[in-house]
Design a binder for these strands. Structure first.
Lengths: 187, 187
DNA sequence: GTCATAGTTTAAGACCATGTGAACCGCAAT
DNA sequence: ATTGCGGTTCACATGGTCTTAAACTATGAC
């Protein structure tokens, strides 16, 4: 019976295809992540790396997940930009290796500060501009202006909330989100 | 100069196109909502209705936003299902009218409980199945099982957090999210 | 009955995101 | 210089989502 771990498992991280249970995990994370507007395969790559618990080469990722060379190249670069994995090269290794980031706060924080915050900010700006324009018209009813103001205020509020979140969450108020980390034990 | 409000503005809610400032608002909301995995036009419809502060007919929505009849039909049905607008028919009116829901908690609560919670739950289930399968293998390293368990635990945690949120948030801990509502004043 | 109006459903097409495969670059070994 | 290997980039194909146009249903007026 073909086992999960090979004898010298250092040099092959996943030739051929995944075990069924591994595929389950990888796809589950992929599906989840897809809903947060990332690519499904980004989630699958991260999950694979996290599960394996060590750095894999692009080729290993490619064959484990059944992706093309180009796709892996794109995916790891994107994930790197989101601080979701790190690219490492051992002294005399001739290939990059990729390892999963396990600090969820770091990842979420980055997504919020780079993406969510930008969106909310631009909505707020549009609402502000709209408010100025509307005020210049002479015939916009008071209640309409009022609703417009309320929307803008809400946007400002959300913007602040996000800022507070990223600024404070690092010093973990959110203990549970540190759960993926390898703390005690080994090493 | 063509004004915003017409003399007898009861019967035309938006013939032709929107005022520039209105378009700004509507599109801003559309862009925002798109990022929460809804259709851009769903956001635009809601924003229009909220801004106008009264129920509009499908035809009015259609011409104000420049959509097709079919699109409006789809959009309002979907929004209705998410409790984002209500469909009303006045006594002797021969057309439905649609009004924006202003209780943000109601809307968010519904989205979380119907969509987000389902996703997280299905991920948790997959992780549980994977964990059982992995335990049946004899050669899965302890650390791997451990990471798998941690992922599952995190999923369970998130699931609980979402449940708590939808169950308690109704009795507004989140005052700011009630901001869109017309409370005091008129009426 | 016919006609008109309001709304729904559907097939077809436009559009966009994602992945592929091949060409390409850079480097090291021979 | 040539070959091999890791990695990147790009044009194109593919697939999914959204919108439209048109057919269709329903309902009320005449």
């Amino acid at each position: 019976m073909r086992g999960y771990a090979r004898e010298h498992d250092d040099d092959d991280g996943g030739v051929g295809t995944l075990q069924p249970w591994e595929a389950l995990v990888v796809d589950a994370v992929g599906n989840l992540i897809e809903f947060w507007n990332f690519k499904r395969n980004q989630g699958r790559v991260w999950a694979l790396l996290y599960l394996r618990g060590r750095a894999l080469t692009a080729a290993q990722i490619q064959s484990a997940l059944g992706l093309s060379k180009g796709a892996v190249s794109m995916l790891v670069r994107e994930l790197e930009q989101w601080c979701v994995l790190v690219r490492v090269r051992a002294p005399h290794d001739d290939a990059w290796r990729f390892a999963a980031e396990t600090d969820l706060m770091k990842m979420i924080g980055r997504v919020i500060s780079e993406r969510e915050r930008g969106i909310v900010a631009s909505v707020r700006e549009d609402l502000e501009r709209a408010e100025r324009l509307a005020k210049d018209e002479h015939d916009v009813p008071r209640e309409v202006l009022d609703r417009l103001r309320r929307m803008r205020t809400l946007a400002v509020f959300v913007e602040r909330a996000l800022r507070v979140f990223v600024d404070t969450a690092r010093f973990d108020a959110f203990g549970a989100l540190d759960m993926l980390r390898d703390k005690g034990a080994r090493h």
